[in-house]
Structure formats: C-alpha cells, structure tokens
C-alpha cells in the first residue's frame, strides 16, 4: 500500500519555483479536479442507479409482454391446468406446481445435508481438512448447471431407474408418492439434482453464520459438561436460527429459478401427478423447451407471463432470505 502512495504522490508534485506560479497552478488544478470529481461521482452514481433501473425495467417489460395473456386469461392463468398451444389455451398450474414441488424436494434433501456439512466444517473437521473440504463443496457450486443436467440425464437417471426407484416402488409403493414406472426422469430426480446444486450455497452461508457464534457461549456449554452435539443443538442452532432460515430460503430461491438441470430431468409433461416418479414440468423447463417454438402472439405472451410469475416468486423469496441473513450481518458475495 505504501508503494502505491509513494508512486501516486509523485504525480501530484507541483512546481515550487515561484510562489505565484504555485498558486495559479494549484488553483487551476483544483478547479479541474472539482469538475473531474463531479463527473466521476456522477458517472458512478448513474451506474449504481442503473442496477435499480434494470430491475424495474425487467419487471415492466415482462408485464408489458405478457399483457396479452393477462388480458385473455386473467387470474385463471394461475389455477387452470390446460396447456394446449394448438387450442390456444394456457394454464400455468402444472408449471407452477412442478417448480414448487421440485424445489421443496430439493430443500427437504439439501437442508439436513448442508447443515451437516456446515457443522462438520465449523465444529469437527481438523484444521488441515477444513480448507480442502470447504473448497471441494464450493466447487460443486461452480459447475455449470448444464453439466448437472447432462450428467443427470446420461448417468444419474439410469442409475436411479436401475437401483433407487425400483426399491422405492417395492417398499414405499403403498404411498401414492411412489407409484408408477421407474423411468429415472421425473419430479424426484429433478428435485434430487437441484438438491445437489443448492447444497454448496446453503452449507457455505450456514458455515459463515455458525462461525459467528461467540466462542464463550460454546465454551460455557462445554464447561457444564455438554457433548458436542448438545452444544450444536442447544446453543449454536438456536443462536443462529434466523440466519440459517435465511440460508435455507436463499437455497430455495436458487432452486426455484434453476433451469437447465431441471429441463433435462423433469420429463417435460404438462400434467399434475401425485407420484414423484412421473414426468412433470416446471416454469423454467417449459420456457426452455417451448419459447423458441412459440410463433403465435398469445402463446409467446403466456410464456412470458410464466417468466413473470417466476420472477415475482423468486423476488419475494430472495428478499425474505436477504432480510433474515442481514440480521447476521453476513457479507454477501462469497460464491
């Protein structure tokens, strides 16, 4: 840092040959500096505002483009389940249902595992392992979602249909959730891949939050003879509750909007089935599959309205997550 300063002050040296020269030069410098200051501040302010503007613009454009569909179907768009491009009849329920159910499956699988990872990394792992394991988990987050989708389709789906789904059908087939054929693609596989994708997010945010528990609290727990698990369950988790809930909701927000992995694995059927093994669809999968094929205005407009619904849902969910995590003054942007 001091190097930078020295180099920088070099540029600021002014001629001191005569007192008059010094004054006029510095005055000139000052006025041009003021102008440059104003311009620089103005430009950076404009770009900062552009972020807000962008968000508003996305919303406005989506509403404008879906207006045709909003006018044609009104509120029934949200609760009808016919999606028939030929008859020009569109209802978003199967997509919305698929988005929500696949995300719930993802959360149910990912939350215990992520918390387990966060506990392992903060409370148990030896110092030497903390770094490498933490990095390995976070690398999972950097793999592009198309890779998850492709791997899911070619490797994981056959694995599921061969080993996991027949087992579920045999032993849990009495539940309506696990009936049907073991296809390897459908709601459950999509939810499972989503879970793997959001585990790094939830676990790294929860790890950061767990680290903020004052050690004096934990030490007083150990001091009265609590086991490690009791300290975690009765001190760490209650202390960090709202932050952890925020982390989970952040993961939910990610899962809701995830596109490529879901598109590969969900099966793309515009139906609502109770069984998690049957093919379904989600908002993002419908968009990815049908958007470029939509030639009629109403069809396109209905698809944009799906996008609008997804945007609004994720906005609400993410805003909630942000408010909850903010209470723990988590500094975002680690991933």
């Amino acid at each position: 840092m001091s190097d930078n300063l020295k180099e920088n002050s070099g540029g600021l040296e002014v001629s001191t040959s005569g007192a008059d020269g010094y004054v006029s030069l510095s005055a000139r410098r000052q006025s041009s500096g003021k102008l440059a200051d104003a311009v620089f501040k103005g430009v950076s302010y404009a770009f900062a505002l552009s972020v807000i503007l962008l968000m508003a613009l996305v919303f406005i454009v989506l509403v404008k483009e879906s207006w045709l569909s909003i006018k044609a179907f009104g509120f029934s768009f949200v609760y009808t389940s016919v999606w028939d491009p030929v008859a020009q009849e569109f209802g978003a329920l199967p997509s919305i249902y698929g988005t929500i159910v696949s995300s719930i499956i993802a959360i149910v699988i990912a939350v215990p595992i992520s918390l387990g990872i966060a506990i392992f990394l903060t409370e148990m792992a030896p110092k030497r392992l903390k770094g490498p394991i933490g990095t390995a988990i976070e690398l999972l987050a950097s793999i592009p979602s198309i890779i998850y989708g492709m791997w899911g389709l070619f490797v994981f789906a056959p694995f599921l249909s061969e080993y996991v789904e027949p087992f579920l059908i045999d032993y849990f087939g009495f539940l309506p959730l696990f009936t049907g054929a073991p296809l390897g693609i459908g709601m459950l596989p999509a939810g499972f891949i989503l879970a793997i994708m959001i585990i790094p997010f939830i676990s790294s945010v929860s790890r950061d939050i767990f680290q903020m528990v004052p050690s004096i609290l934990k030490e007083s727990g150990y001091g009265v003879g609590a086991t490690k698990w009791e300290v975690i369950w009765k001190i760490v988790l209650p202390y960090t509750r709202s932050g952890v809930i925020g982390a989970v909701i952040l993961g939910l927000g990610r899962a809701l909007g995830e596109t490529m992995a879901v598109t590969f694995l969900i099966g793309n059927a515009q139906e609502i089935k109770l069984s998690l093994l049957d093919p379904a669809t989600s908002i993002s999968a419908t968009l990815a599959n049908e958007f470029t094929e939509a030639v009629e205005d109403l069809y396109l407009s209905s698809l944009v309205e799906l996008g609008l619904i997804l945007f609004v849902i994720t906005f609400v969910v993410l805003a909630l997550a942000k408010l909850l995590i903010a209470r723990f003054s988590y500094k975002g942007g680690n991933l």
Binding site: E65, R254, L287, V304, T314, L318
Partner: peptide
C-alpha cells in the same frame, strides 16, 4: 437499495433474463 437489488439480481433466475433480453 442498490445493494439489496444487486443481491436479489445475483440469484434471479437467469432464464427470465433471457426472456427479458428477447423482448428488448
């Protein structure tokens, strides 16, 4: 407000951004 909006945009569904750019 800029921070709040950026944090939400970071996790906003990227496919919706695709739809937005398609429209504009």
């Amino acid at each position: 407000v800029v921070r709040f909006v950026s944090d939400i945009l970071v996790s906003a569904p990227s496919i919706v951004i695709g739809v937005f750019v398609y429209a504009i």
